[in-house]
Design a protein around this nucleic acid. Structure first.
Length: 362
DNA sequence: GAGATTTGACCAGG
DNA sequence: CCTGGTCAAATCTC
């Protein structure tokens, strides 16, 4: 029994390593093809798609094995407690509002939920840059942190029972950076509304900065609080980063964008990114799939994944993603929670994943 | 006056 | 017992 489990584990690792290699290959291909000529992607696209299919296939195999192992092994308990989502089984979804209310727990920490963390460099308090309306309900000095952490919940919590919350904390290193941790998903109407209208918050102008050279162009999404001069900036790359972390699930430890493109206004976004950030096509894909997105199955996840890193060259169905976005969270990925240890190493992504959004998305 | 924010107290996990 | 997360009364803003 244990031997077979070990064999399975090895084969899973093999699958994942293969996936990693394929991903690298794909990245190299994407990077080189887009940097050489942005318009001649048709030939490489075919190859890319093949690669993508391989990657997806590899991942699905690995996941199937992991699931299999999990069902047999002792990790099942962990899976269950971690809102196991064995392929869409509604049996144990993420703790739903009713459940949370019943226990009236003042600590949400232990509740299984998906977390998203955005680390943006921006000049405002970061309260509404994601387009949702939040209400502050607490502030706490955190041990070891210079700045207090602010606790926000969805404004429509009482009205619509939306339990989305977020925590905003200034970075110790750079006070201009706010670490925002999103907990739970919006179940309120603004979630779906935002997806369609994506009304940018008003007032303060925001622009994307590229390596300290402000690429202030046509798009200047706005923010609500004007505590900053008009120079409110979102930065990416070397100065600032957009970091997405699924703290509980840790599929993608982090992403760093090195050079954002300034694209046309995107109307479709339902996510936690500041509107301005969505100007970037990649971010649209990225955010749609990973930020407020709910991943409901392995295949969904990999669809998302494919839409994230590969930008437009691969992404050919926004409606799919939109559908995914509006799907209830049921965290389908507990079975691969720890995969980043063996596959999605942070450094690998930072260094091996050449996500030059300008290259990819123009 | 309604809604948002502040802030001290409370609660529960580790 | 310490700490983080939440509550809720007081206060502020529009």
């Amino acid at each position: 029994m244990e031997e077979s489990a070990q064999c399975e584990q090895v084969s899973v690792i093999d699958e994942l390593l293969l996936g990693k290699e394929l991903t690298k290959k794909l990245c190299e291909q994407l990077f080189s093809s887009s940097s050489s000529s942005s318009s001649s992607s048709s030939s490489s696209c075919d190859t890319n798609e093949v690669l993508i299919e391989k990657i997806i296939s590899t991942m699905e195999k690995a996941l199937a094995k992991v699931n299999c192992m999990a069902n047999v092994g002792e990790s099942k308990a962990m899976m269950d407690s971690h809102c196991s989502f064995t392929n869409g089984s509604p049996k144990s979804e993420v703790v739903e509002p009713e459940v949370e209310h019943k226990h009236v727990s003042k600590k949400r920490k232990t509740m299984p939920r998906r977390r998203e963390q955005v680390e943006v460099c921006l000049g405002t308090e970061g309260n509404k840059e994601d387009g949702y309306s939040w209400r502050k309900y607490g502030q706490k000095d955190i041990l070891g942190a210079k700045f207090p952490r602010g606790y926000y919940r969805c404004t429509y919590r009482n009205i619509q029972g939306c339990l989305a919350t977020k925590q905003v904390q200034k970075s110790d290193e750079d006070p201009m950076i706010y670490e925002i941790t999103y907990i739970g998903r919006h179940t309120c109407t603004q979630a779906s509304h935002l997806k369609k209208t994506a009304v940018p918050p008003s007032k303060t102008k925001v622009r994307i900065e590229e390596n300290k050279h402000q690429t202030n162009e046509k798009n200047q999404p706005q923010q609500e609080k004007i505590e900053q001069p008009p120079e409110t900036i979102f930065s990416f790359g070397s100065q600032g980063e957009v970091k997405v972390e699924d703290l509980d699930l840790e599929i993608f430890p982090s992403f760093c964008f090195s050079s954002p493109s300034v694209g046309s206004e995107n109307e479709e976004n339902n996510n936690i990114f500041p509107h301005s950030m969505i100007d970037n096509n990649l971010l649209e894909n990225f955010s749609s799939s990973f930020m407020s997105t709910t991943i409901t199955s392995e295949s969904d996840m990999f669809c998302n994944w494919e839409s994230i890193g590969l930008g437009q060259s691969v992404h050919n169905s926004t409606s799919d993603i939109t559908d995914i976005v509006s799907t209830p969270t049921s965290a389908t990925y507990s079975s691969i929670m720890d995969l980043d240890d063996i596959f999605l190493d942070k450094n690998d992504f930072d260094t091996d994943f050449p996500m030059n959004t300008r290259e990819l998305c123009i």
